[in-house]
Design a binder for these strands. Structure first.
Lengths: 218, 218, 218, 218
DNA sequence: TATGAATGAGAGTTCATTCAT
DNA sequence: GATGAATGAACTCTCATTCAT
């Protein structure tokens, strides 16, 4: 195996960089204009290339958008895992999990991509391949939650409630609150959503939590 | 007042009937194909008229779709109120409220319009006039919830928790569970979502509730 | 012959009034928006009736527009003749003729119809029935000019040049100057056009004419 | 500078050729069908391309038509200047000028574009950007005329009348006669219009001119 | 790899005209 | 005489996609 080939497998070539650049541009455009109003030309314009090149890389628009969704989910998940692993206790991890979803300054989304998941839900509802991506993503996160809760229970931090049902309820609450925030509900600020959710979670799992912990900047 | 005049005020004219017919057709098509893929021709085809007639009534496609959203929200709200008023206790009303949102056979949506609100959320995120409709609708329902909870508290049915915060939490949970159902999450059936939500609600408000009440058909 | 029938032939019935009203409205709209951009709905709107009624009276849009052109030409011609007949000398008549064509405050056009003839020329170039109307109108005016010039020659007011050729030249000059005015040529004011044309005419026919006669207000 | 670069600057690229081809086709269609009845599809059909390509080059129909007018004026002017420069005396130039405007076989219009300027006048009357093009064109020609007359006066060919006023009168007469020809006035043939105009011009500038000079072919 | 030229298949909208009332 | 409802036939413009270079 020559060194050149070895490099091709490990270092991202120009093609991979281009792909990633296009995917990121796609996410930005989708977030700004909405999934349905995203045109290939918008994405090409954003990085100063021709629309034909986008098709050259992704074959069809549909493929590009599906890949973009996958790229988004993977990036988000990786970052989430990374943060979890840095925290010592189950309670701190749970808090980080809620904060990632509800507090803008702790959200791992790339800049200006705040509405993406909402658009993705709509796509998932009618497009089977998007639905599959979402299903896998949901599963992953629910596993994270269940594992996290069980670890807390074993460590004596949390009460012994049924973890899977709790994971469903908590996911639903996070999603619901995130929708309110995304649609700029006037009575729900990020801080309030965060506090409400943490109170709910702490109540269910019987661990001590007070909003003071969030700090004034949150 | 002659009978003719009276009829003119109460009976909808041919124009009003057409309008309503088009709005209902629009809701069906949006639900099936998604907001963005809804074409004027689809709506016209569905009721066997020419696309030009749709424009004749609504001036632009955008106007039609915005009116359709309003029509949907108003119809839903009216039906919800009607059902609430038929029930004797606050607990029963709360249960009806949850059932309307989570159990398909108690959902007041017209046939085949199960995904509408998800599409509407996406529209609301970027279209100010749709956002206004949604905001008003949210307010109305939260008022219903708060009033309902306070009535239950005064009647001694519910514990004395803070009603507005409960309304936010409960709305969020309903929305979140509805999303899971809409996207056919394999671990969340309507019955399970309903039971989970009712348990949560009963726990918060400290009233007795058991899934048995749902009945075998649900 | 009953009185009713007699009246029908002499007094304009409601139908004739409607027709005239529509023709006048058509002329206004054509002048404002241009022949090609005139829609039946514009004309109907202007007099507060339905477009269907316009078709009821004129059968087709084309018919209406052709009739409007004829109506315009006839009205203009009648007013021109009326003015000519009130003036004593050939020189005065010639001056009135030039003034009618070049000075806005002596132009017999209905309000806001200053560009009509330009649009009519374009129609005449491609529509044979409009061409016929224009040809007849041209002939009439050239006859008026020739008769006028010959009367002046017989009265000793004018030099004995060939009248028909003069009529052609003078018509051309009037048309050409009118175009400059209509298109708001910055170096040609109505007064200048009038003075230039009268100088030309007086030079050809050898009669005395000085711009002083126009007066400061013209 | 390599030859390749030099060629790039002088030879028109494929895009420029296409543009010019479309502009010429547009002029033909406008002349045949009239400005208002010119459809993008007509122009595309004429050169065997798709309507979408027309939009690709000109963005909107309006842009195409405005560009076509400009193209026409520039081409006409360039050809006029070229001819003027080939002639030795002011009188010969003046004659060429009149002939270009009135005699079909000396008119520089591309084939089948005889009615264009009439349509352009109507557009100029209501469309400011077209009006600007026409104004500039008028100015250019009037400057040519004034310069020409003054050169003739200095050379002793012409009488010393005021050149600017003469330019206005002569332009008006040319326009007026051209209208008569365009609308196929039965009493005005190109030859007669030419002779009348030259007699007028020769009379004003006091130079000798006889129709014999036109020759039998004119 | 990268692009500009080119297209086909719509999509929304306009508008003269018809017709039952 | 008068209208509102309804339509068919255009027409402009959009956009993903192809292809030669």
């Amino acid at each position: 195996m020559t060194e050149q080939v070895a490099r091709a497998q490990t270092e991202p070539g120009i093609a991979d960089q281009r792909r990633a650049q296009m995917l990121r541009a796609a996410l930005e455009v989708i977030s700004e204009r909405g999934f349905a109003d995203t045109r290939i030309a918008d994405i090409a314009d954003r990085i100063g290339i021709s629309p034909a090149l986008v098709i050259y890389y992704f074959k069809t628009k549909d493929q590009l958008l599906t890949d973009a969704i996958r790229y988004y989910e993977d990036t988000w998940y990786a970052e989430g895992r990374r943060r979890m692993e840095m925290l010592p206790t189950a309670a701190r991890r749970l808090e980080e999990f809620v904060a990632m979803n509800l507090l803008p300054d702790r959200n791992p989304d790339p800049d200006g991509t705040a509405l993406l998941w909402l658009d993705f839900w709509v796509q998932a509802a009618r497009n089977p391949s998007v639905a599959a991506v979402r299903r896998k993503s949901d599963e992953r996160w629910r596993d994270v939650l269940v594992t996290l809760v069980r670890a807390g229970q074993e460590a004596g931090e949390f009460a012994g409630i049924e973890a899977p049902s709790f994971a469903v309820l908590m996911s639903a609450m996070l999603d619901g609150l995130a929708v309110q925030l995304a649609l700029r509900d006037p009575v729900v600020s990020p801080q309030r959503a965060f506090a409400l959710c943490m109170s709910f979670v702490a109540g269910q799992l019987r661990f001590a939590w007070s909003p003071a912990g969030v700090g004034p900047g949150a």
